[in-house]
Amino acid sequence: MNATTSAHRCGWTFRFRRTVALAATLAALLPSAQAASPSFDCKRAQTPSERAICAQPQLARQDARIAGLYRQRRQALDATGREALARDQRYFLYVRDRVHALTTDDGGVAGLERLQRRRIEFLEAIDTSPRRGPAGRWGNLESQAQVEARDGRWQLVVSGAEPITARWLCEYDGTAIARGDRWQADDAEYRRRVSLRRDGALLALEDGPLGADGDRGATPYCGANGSLDGAYLPLRGAASR
């Protein structure tokens, strides 16, 4: 064997060993690279849903994303918007526990993943730019509303559902007209009035009886225990139907 061949083989052997060592190092680092940390200390996890989030990297990444988006959006909103988003987030945490506890296909880890994915989409869509009037897309954990100007009036479409088991569903489509600082959509058939008003960054919806003899019972377009009432945060894009 001549010197050139020996040197060539030595160089190849060195490169091979270096490649093997690098691969081993990367393999050792891979678990830590794939690990995900949620927004809370897993050593202090108290609820079954928190323990599930700590045990599932995908859920942990979603939780961290939700917490980061929540902080960002809350800081960018005005005082009324911050308080409304805080209430909505507390409600989300309650719903999260209830969804994870379900023993149906809608619950467990799969249900938790779907719920958190929808929450990320909602938080990403919050529009923190100034907005005047009722026009645009609005929403909260339960419902979304789309308000569009049409022939001098405002077309209001609201859809929503109870977020745990969908035991009630809302589907409303009506025309609102300006009444002072509000926009009102009157439903003569059911003797109901849906009232809109701006409250800082929010759109507040109130649903109640039309006049003294109006229907004060279940909302006909939401089913038993359902309601359109609430604070709706400004969202970008078209409403999900």
Rank of each mutant, 00 (worst) to 15 (best):
A3E: 15
T4L: 11
T4H: 08
H8Y: 08
H8T: 09
R9P: 05
G11D: 07
R15A: 09
R15Q: 07
R17L: 15
A21G: 09
A23N: 08
L26S: 05
L26D: 04
A28D: 01
L29T: 07
P31V: 01
P31F: 04
S32H: 10
S32T: 11
Q34R: 08
S37K: 09
P38L: 00
F40Q: 09
C42K: 03
R44Q: 11
A45E: 02
A45S: 05
P48K: 10
S49N: 13
E50P: 13
I53F: 03
C54N: 13
A55P: 06
Q56I: 14
P57C: 00
P57N: 00
P57Q: 00
P57R: 00
Q58W: 06
Q62W: 08
Q62V: 07
A64K: 14
Y70C: 02
Q72D: 15
L77F: 10
L77E: 10
T80H: 12
E83I: 08
L85F: 02
L93D: 02
L93G: 00
A101T: 03
L102F: 01
G108P: 05
V109Y: 00
L112N: 09
Q116W: 00
R118C: 00
F122V: 03
L123F: 08
I126Q: 08
I126V: 14
T128E: 01
P134D: 13
P134Y: 15
G136R: 11
G136Q: 11
R137G: 06
G139K: 13
L141I: 09
A145R: 04
A145K: 06
Q146E: 14
Q146G: 09
V147I: 04
E148L: 12
W154E: 07
Q155F: 05
Q155H: 14
A161F: 11
A161G: 04
E162P: 05
E162Y: 09
I164F: 04
I164T: 15
I164R: 11
R167Y: 11
W168A: 01
W168H: 06
C170M: 08
D173Y: 06
D173S: 12
G174Y: 01
I177C: 01
D181P: 03
R182F: 06
W183Y: 13
W183V: 06
A188D: 12
E189Y: 13
R193G: 00
S195V: 10
S195N: 05
L196H: 15
R198E: 02
D199F: 01
G200E: 01
A201F: 01
L205Y: 10
D207N: 04
D207G: 02
D215P: 10
Y221L: 06
C222V: 04
C222W: 05
G223K: 07
N225Q: 14
S227E: 04
L228E: 11
D229I: 01
G230E: 04
A231D: 13
A231S: 11
Y232R: 03
L233S: 03
P234C: 12
A238I: 08
A238G: 06
S240P: 12
